[in-house]
Amino acid sequence: MGPERNPKTTRLLGLFWITRNPRLLRAGLGHNYAIQSIEQRGSSQIFNFTVLSSRKQIKGSMPPVAPRSGDAIFANVERVNAELFTLTYGAIVRQLLTDLEEVEEVNKQLDQMGYNIGIRLVDEFLAKSNVSRCVDFKETADVIAKVGFKMFLGVTASVTNWDADGTSCSFVLEDNPLVDFVELPDTCQGLYYCNILSGVIRGALEMVSMKTEVTWVRDMLRGDDAFELQVKLLKQVPEEYPYKDDE
């Protein structure tokens, strides 16, 4: 099945849970699906699935003792067609553009969706990768680049552009599965198409007590030679006793 450029997709997105890595898609109803084919029928695309497994089976194996590499985890999770993932993400962005009209609003909404994904995804990351606490922000950045990106997106990022005090760095992505088939039309010039990624990182780091600011520095869709995400550590939040004494 050849990919369509600018596919018109139906609103199937309410169903899907797209926090997963690109090769696996899990529907909200608790089943894993493998895509069989994508058909173009008039203006809609029809996805044909087979059910791989249902959530009712006991999942999760005994976790490994040592920290695992991104490749090892990626090899072990169930995966599904990357095209489905890319097109599904595309359909979300498309629908947001239709619903919100303003490109700025779409950027914001994508970031918020990413944040909501990030605050959940961090637990899956910790459970599967078995990494323990990182000593400093440098180690955190390395782990995200080498393990995190690999585990959820199937690509690795490189970490560069550290500032002098080690609180800001960049993730550089040479390959980004989200943007296959995408070209920004004139009407969407201000769009950060992958803004969901910045939200994911911000959300995930917030759950491990790091407040960050994540911005795009380079974007291939805007003619740059790579994707570069700058992550700036604003502050680390100490763990405090959550109850008040008089409660």
């Binding site: 926090t19 959530r55 999760g60 976790p63 003792v65 605050i119 959940r120 899956e124 459970a127 599967k128």
Partner: peptide
């Protein structure tokens, strides 16, 4: 310690990944 990690895995699979669960 390992069983607790397993329970954490269960929590991830059955709770965190459930889109209808509010963190």
């Amino acid at each position: 310690r390992d069983p607790l990690k397993y329970i954490y895995n269960l929590y991830v699979e059955y709770v965190v990944k459930n889109p209808l669960y509010t963190p």
